[in-house]
Design a protein around this nucleic acid. Structure first.
Lengths: 247, 247
DNA sequence: CGAGTTATTGACAATGCTCAAAGTACGTGG
DNA sequence: CCACGTACTTTGAGCATTGTCAATAACTCG
């Protein structure tokens, strides 16, 4: 009995250690030595899964942790006075959440689970301290932030120059690439976000999202059924997303 | 003779040291002890001024330095295949340029001087190493990057939700605030960027920028003459930029 | 199974873009 | 210092893309 409990306990610990985590090659400790991974592991806190719709952090709450997504997905929504929300990001497994709160020491948006989602909680002050002793960790942190800036700049381009069709095509091919990178199918996946979320993120009305998805289907680019997506012609989508005309 | 040369040399050194720099309260070493400022100072390289239109860095060039603007201003322009450029940022004195190149080890855009501009060049590997020994410097670096992410998210909101009028109003009041923070007039300044640059940045056609600036003038919000701007009603501009209707 | 949310579809309107042309500022060289 | 060429800015007219409003259809989950 005690043996079984212990075994269960140990296996639970094991499955929640960075070294055995399937995301280790994508996540923050990706470049670390074994010893360093252990040190990093020691400051990480595992959390109970979030249910769909639950908030991981609330806008304006004091900043103290960053989070790495283990499974599921989240959205970040910033509300301004006037009730118009802006969805600024979707987060998938291995991605780091909360880095935009460092500066003002508050989280700049609500982070909401789109489905059942588990995250690792990483106290930022300890991460910062550890990054002093582990240069590789510091590098990785700088890289994550730098990448986030670059991604946002891509998004600026999307919002300022792309047509509605190009935006949807970008969105789908980018999701496809992100899933592929994580070992999932690049051609067949389920959207965890609503059409309204997609529209909000892409700067389009829900109706436009719906219409264009319909059109893509007619054009045999994708097969969409509710939130289930099958990509039929990834190349064409990618071309479209870069503004190349299609026949 | 030798004395004079030495004196000149020393004074030139003095005027280009962080401790005597008028931007020290806004720039990277803002929170450091005197000793640490000296250590930071030692890795900073001063550069000959850039002339208007000159490139500080070219897109895709290998990343090695970040830069702090000392005087003047710059724009960042990313070109994608297909010749459509996206202007992603304007940089004013004390701001840090190049942080978005860390991740890919290439600069993601051309950085072009909008007028005669001087910058401090900071080798990133040395900055990184120094940030190991000076926690306050590391904190400041994280903050700068975090702020850049937050600013970009604000920009996403602007591009995805704001009307052309709101965008221009945001642009002007944001510039006003940035000048004020740097000790310049918040009400009277000269735009170093062209209407085309503004339009590109805000996701608008040049013609729209011109028309709306004209309308703002009719409405007595600003007085614009070429690139010279006088803000007549900052409150109204700020209200407008948040989408509040105006009479 | 039914209430509420989410998605689709249609008709119409508006904001901002494109194209075109003229006017103005700028800077370079004579 | 002025003249000229170039680049930048303004203004007008028509139009396209996408948003808004409205109604219906399809899920989702107690």
């Amino acid at each position: 009995m005690a043996d079984t409990a212990l075994a269960t306990h140990r296996s639970r610990l094991l499955e929640t250690r960075c070294q055995t985590c399937s995301l280790s090659s994508l996540c923050l400790p990706l470049a670390l030595e074994l010893d360093d991974i252990d040190r990093f592991d020691a400051i990480v806190r595992r959390r109970a899964p979030l249910k769909k719709g639950e908030a991981l952090v609330r806008q304006h709450a004091p900043f103290s942790n960053v989070f790495a997504v283990r499974s599921g997905s989240l959205k970040q929504v910033s509300s301004e006075s006037g009730g118009d929300d802006q969805l600024t990001n979707f987060y998938l497994p291995s991605e780091l959440v909360g880095l935009d709160g460092i500066d003002e020491e508050r989280y700049p948006g609500n982070i909401i689970a789109l489905e059942t989602t588990t995250v690792c909680e990483i106290p930022f002050d300890r991460l910062d301290a550890l990054s002093e002793r582990i240069p590789g960790l510091r590098t990785q942190l700088f890289r994550s932030m730098s990448k986030e800036i670059r991604d946002d700049r891509q998004m600026l381009r999307l919002l300022s120059r792309k047509t509605a069709d190009e935006r949807l095509a970008s969105f789908l091919s980018s999701l496809s690439a992100r899933f592929r990178r994580r070992g999932y199918s690049a051609y067949s996946f389920r959207l965890s976000m609503s059409r309204a979320d997609i529209g909000n993120y892409l700067g389009l009305a829900v109706e436009t999202v719906s219409r264009i998805l319909g059109r893509f289907q007619e054009q045999q680019l994708v097969a969409v059924s509710g939130r289930e997506v099958n990509i039929l012609d990834l190349e064409a989508l990618e071309a479209l997303s870069e503004g190349e005309v299609h026949g």
